[in-house]
Nucleic acid binder design. Structure first.
Lengths: 195, 195
DNA sequence: GTCTATATTTTGATAGAC
DNA sequence: GTCTATCAAAATATAGAC
């Protein structure tokens, strides 16, 4: 399934990432991982202690990747509004959902402090990163200064995570886009009154 | 687990509802349902064709309940903003997530037109119901008339669905509340300029 | 309608040969 | 490091007695 140039542990991690995204932790079996990775049972248990261990490696990498992708957009040029807009409008595989956020609905992930940690850290980081940008916008007079930057940032992250839910429910990315456009319209309305 | 006054099919449906909420479709086994309902295998397969059939009955009931709960608040008194606020601030079992929305992350539910239908219908209904209220607010001069009511409604539903994700990630309902407060602040900012 | 037995497949892993 | 048994338990039913 993967390039022969990839090592077996590497192929196992990538296969697990794909399957966790597609079917979640509970819905992903070691057998499916092995088949996807083109690795035998013995091979998987040689490199990883078991399903939780392999899932942890996969989740950590996915979390790191998501953070890097977000940072690439958020560190870009433009006003606070423009950077938030760029983040919200960035290309996404909407119908697949968020590979990090979806893990919060996995009971076994939530029950494990180790598996949940990368999820918590990533979403916390994202919210804080956005809060900094919103605060900048308030300080620069771009947004009404009375806004609570942390709350606005939470609303932004929630809109994205919930947008995936709407899109998957509707079977169409348009539902995601509608929510994003609604939020952006409200953000534009939060500019201070111009005298 | 349930009152003896409940019929066996009834107990099976209620047990399935609980387990779908807690563990999702993929994570819920017939055996777990039977134990939760205090019913034997034969009993379950006598009343229902199998796991998908029972899940369908459970999902339909949960969807209907969610709709009724939302309608009770949305049909209440007050301005458009006040009704949206009442909906967003209504008591919720935040850390358990949305029993309907969480199903969108279940690959087997999404793959089945029958199982997905109640989810799609419920979220569509909710968005349309909110859109009507937001449109009222625009028409009454409560919100800037340039707002697209459907998009604002999508943003509201997304914020709630995403709020559950943030709360479960953080292990605290406060993360949900923060997103809701952020959205409400933006909605208040979307009042037309007062001359 | 409910119960117990039985069956097939999958899950998640261990053992040990190569 | 990889492969092929092997394994106990669970998943998802069906059969047939009561």
């Amino acid at each position: 399934m993967y390039s022969v140039l990839m090592s077996t542990p590497e192929r196992l991690i990538e296969a697990t990432r794909e399957l966790l995204w597609e079917r979640g932790y509970v819905g992903t079996s070691p057998k499916a991982i092995q088949q996807h990775a083109g690795a035998g049972q013995g091979s998987m248990y040689h490199h990883f202690a078991g399903k939780p261990d392999l899932a942890l490696a996969a989740i950590r990498r996915t979390a790191e990747e998501m953070r890097a992708t977000a940072e690439a957009v958020l560190a870009g040029p433009g006003s606070a509004y423009e950077r938030v807009e760029a983040y919200l409008l960035r290309e996404r595989d909407v119908l697949r959902g968020c590979p990090v956020g979806r893990l919060t609905m996995d009971p076994d992930v939530i029950a494990s402090d180790e598996l949940r940690a990368p999820v918590t850290e990533t979403l916390d980081w994202l919210r804080d990163r956005l809060a900094g940008i919103v605060q900048e916008g308030c300080d620069q007079g771009e947004f009404t200064p009375s806004l609570n930057a942390g709350e606005i940032a939470s609303a932004i992250v929630a809109t994205v995570q919930g947008g995936y839910v709407l899109a998957r429910s509707a079977g169409s990315p348009a539902a995601f886009d509608a929510g994003v456009r609604g939020l952006l319209a409200l953000l534009r309305a939060a500019a201070p009154a111009r005298p």
